[in-house]
Amino acid sequence: MTSLLEIADLSAEVAGKPILKGLSLRVGAGEIHAIMGPNGAGKSTLGYVLGGRPGYEVTGGSVTFAGQDLLALAPHERAAAGLFLGFQYPVEIPGVSNVQFLREALNAQRTARGEAPLSGGEFLKLAREKAGLLRFDMEMLKRPVNVAFSGGEKKRAEMVQMGILGPTLAILDETDSGLDIDALRICGEGINAIMRQPDKAVVLITHYQRLLDYVQPDVVHVLADGRIVRSGGPELAHELEAQGYEATA
């Protein structure tokens, strides 16, 4: 199995405080990994570090993504290389429409990869198809990014973004929080449709088994105090849900 993402002994700090403390993780192409763990363990920090968020300082270790040194790339270069970060709290951007920004973002990625940019018509066709997949109203996609969206709409909008951008690796940070039961199923099926392919992979950060009922993981990890402390098969998620993190740590 080719390893798409290889994190080795990664340490990172935020505002001078060590958060990731020697985290290692390998994700192969075609795999879905779940990361669970108590609040404050560093799960979102891991996502931000992989995305290259300013202020999240890597102090040690390495990250290789599709054969490249991920940490050497700027955030937009990581996106062009095929990384997508689903935010635990998607950011509202007043005055910037989803359609406008996604078309620019996709074409910037395509240009960086040496592909021809999509025309307005081609882009809208793609956007309509992916919005349909997530049962997301195309009219809402014309509105400003995440502004006045409910918690669940924000998460679904993020999955539409993922569909449009077509990444090879998605790090999805608590995509299931804020979703009602129907939206959970729609998002779960969306993730499968978009990402469950032999050359792609997903890292799902979640607290609950319920999303994993739809998106079945190959591997489940427990992240505690900045490290992966345990890994196992899908049954580990059930065990965690039944017994909590402390009993299994």
């Binding site: 290259g52 968020r53 937009h76 951007i93 920004f101 910037a108």
Partner: peptide, 10 residues
């Protein structure tokens, strides 16, 4: 950062 994470240059 949100926009950059989607592929837009700074």
């Amino acid at each position: 950062f949100y926009l950059e994470s989607r592929g837009l240059s700074p």
